[in-house]
Nucleic acid binder design. Structure first.
Lengths: 212, 212
DNA sequence: CAATAATGGGGAGTAGTACTATCCAAGTCA
DNA sequence: TGACTTGGATAGTACTACTCCCCATTATTG
């Protein structure tokens, strides 16, 4: 399979494939001469994965590269798989963030504080600060309901990790974490629309998507 | 309050404030002369809100403008509030997307199909396509668990909308939808870390954030 | 009142990202 | 043999979110 066929098979322009090769997101083909290389099914699969990461999941090319690097070279059997996935989607926190608000919540929810990564805690703190700096104060009970729901999600996540092979687990965790996020957000919005429709009826909060 | 004081009060550079003024994200101050305008608390609040939207929530300036425009001019009492918020974070779907996969899921979950916006359904279809094109096949029962969790989230969302004033409802729905997303994602990651830690222990899936 | 500083308004410039286009020599295929 | 394709590299593009600079006009300060 030559590069133009790879392009045809995936819908990705040749120039873009070359770009991904340069950026080390896609492994090189086997050179058969100075100006010819052969690509195979692994390139097709990888290309689709890349497009899912940078397209659907909205990762930057740099983040996708880091994440793929981890998928390619599993650190050791199961060592910090989650950390790898989370690092690709969580920006590093500055040294001086105050994690106290997050830690209090973790205690309240019984989520092992020592299990939870600094940067992820900082992300929660920042997100909550965004809410409150927008003048949006969330009552604790409501926040707790959200936490319970996300705990359910996480239990589903962790519960369905394949435990047979470390590579499979790796793949599942890394990709499941980032590729599931847009799915969850879309589901939330649909559920909101449905709940709003049931509660308020058309034309109240949900609007009138199908008037007449 | 002059522009430099507004900058000092919010931490936003003067040049950036001018940019937001040009882009109509921030309302103008009251001119007291040809080269002087007065700003007040409403500008401080608005600026914080803008930073939360484009910073924390990751909206583009254009999306933030559209959303703020809606918050400023509530259409009519409760008319399509959700639609407004969702439009700001959901890109328009092309005419030819096949919504069938989403509609089947909506039926299965009992979420009123007629309540659910085309673009949002398309977003779900695309997100699921991203998963599957990455070679990631999600068992239906697992997807159903996610759906249940997001339904819980949405019920909390809709249940805590203030029903007294349309303006308050507007604000709550629009901002709650977009500003809560980063909160939910951060909570999911923390819950994953905690669940993983409980299930596999340190050094297995969760990694060893605190070795020793 | 004079010197210095700050402001509104506006245009231009910048940094980063994700491509996209062009070129060329070398190789393939008809 | 000769048009077409490829790998490899460089340069250019479109977009976004600022950031810089300028100027005439105030405001402030000594």
């Amino acid at each position: 399979m030559r590069i133009s066929q790879l392009a045809a098979a995936t819908g990705v322009p040749v120039a873009t494939i070359k770009y991904y090769l340069r950026e080390k997101l896609l492994h090189e083909g086997v050179l058969t001469s100075a100006t010819q290389a052969r690509y195979d099914d692994s390139h097709v699969r990888r290309l689709k994965l890349i497009r899912a990461l940078v397209g659907t999941a909205g990762l930057s090319v740099a983040a996708a590269r880091e994440l793929l690097l981890g998928v390619d070279n599993p650190p050791e059997a199961g060592h910090d798989l989650l950390g790898l996935a989370h690092r690709a989607v969580t920006r590093p926190a500055p040294d001086d963030v105050d994690l106290a608000p997050a830690q209090e919540l973790l205690r309240r929810w019984g989520w092992g504080e020592q299990a939870c990564d600094r940067n992820t805690q900082a992300a929660l703190v920042e997100a909550l600060a965004g809410l409150s700096s927008a003048g949006f104060e969330l009552p604790s009970p409501v926040l707790d309901r959200y936490a319970q729901a996300m705990r359910d999600v996480a239990d589903a996540d962790v519960g369905s990790v394949p435990t047979d092979s470390p590579e499979a687990a790796m793949r599942y965790v890394v990709l499941g974490t980032v590729l599931m996020e847009p799915v969850l957000l879309a589901m939330r919005r649909l559920a909101q629309q449905s709940a709003s429709f049931e509660r308020f009826g058309a034309g109240e909060l949900a609007g009138e998507p199908h008037p007449g």
